[in-house]
């Protein structure tokens, strides 16, 4: 089951669309990274020309990639975590309770992170007119910071949705394999 399946249908459709959009953007950015380096090499070696200051636009793109994709990671619940204690939770109720606790803690932390990211944006804007900009192309740092903000926002948002779905369906939603079993079987069979 995907997270959106546990939401009210219209809201679920919206959430699903947002995830699709983020994935499409991230996938394109993922392709842009290596393509840029190929271009750098080709430009230098074959065209004897410089892709001047390419890192100034490539790095903001990569920050959007990291954080939007990490938001999707929260949606899919594929954040990296230690699953040492997982096997000790056997009953549906225990598994459900553990998942609920983890998502509540993670979501609370995400909201604090979101507040810190808001402070980052705010302190950046407050420096007007002397915004931090890249030296050559004058791309404001705000661009990358905004990507970070949106990513953390979605991490917090999806965390909240996980909590909502867990509370809405209660322990009986734990009929499916646990995330560890998911890993064992491959994600496809799971979701």
């Amino acid at each position: 089951m995907e997270l959106a399946d546990g939401l009210p249908p219209r809201f679920g459709r919206l959430v699903r669309k947002l995830v699709t959009a983020k994935l499409a953007m991230s996938a394109i950015a993922t392709l842009i990274l290596p393509l840029t380096f190929l271009m750098v090499v080709i430009f230098r070696y074959i065209l004897h020309w410089d892709l001047f200051a390419y890192e100034e636009w490539l790095l903001p793109i990569s920050f959007w990639l990291y954080f939007l994709a990490c938001g999707v990671g929260s949606y899919q619940d594929t954040q990296i975590r230690a699953d040492i204690l997982e096997s000790y939770f056997k009953s549906a109720r225990a598994i459900w309770l553990r998942r609920l606790c983890l998502h509540v803690v993670e979501t609370l932390i995400c909201f604090v992170m979101l507040y810190w990211t808001y402070l980052l944006l705010d302190s950046g804007i407050a420096q007007y007119p002397y915004w931090q900009k890249t030296i050559a192309l004058k791309i404001p740092f705000f661009v990358a910071h905004l990507g970070i903000f949106l990513g953390v926002f979605f991490m917090a948002f999806y965390g909240l949705l996980h909590v909502y779905v867990l509370v809405r369906f209660g322990p009986q939603m734990i009929r499916e394999p646990s995330p560890v079993q998911c890993k064992l079987m491959g994600e496809e069979q799971c979701c």
């Binding site: 230098r44 004897h48 410089d50 001047f52 200051a53 890192e55 100034e56 890249t134 030296i135 050559a136």
Partner: peptide
């Protein structure tokens, strides 16, 4: 990554790279 450094070296006749 400075336009100043780059244009100076371009002017001096170098191929420049970042």
């Amino acid at each position: 990554s400075s336009q100043l450094a780059k244009s100076t070296m371009d002017l001096l006749g170098y191929q420049t790279t970042t």
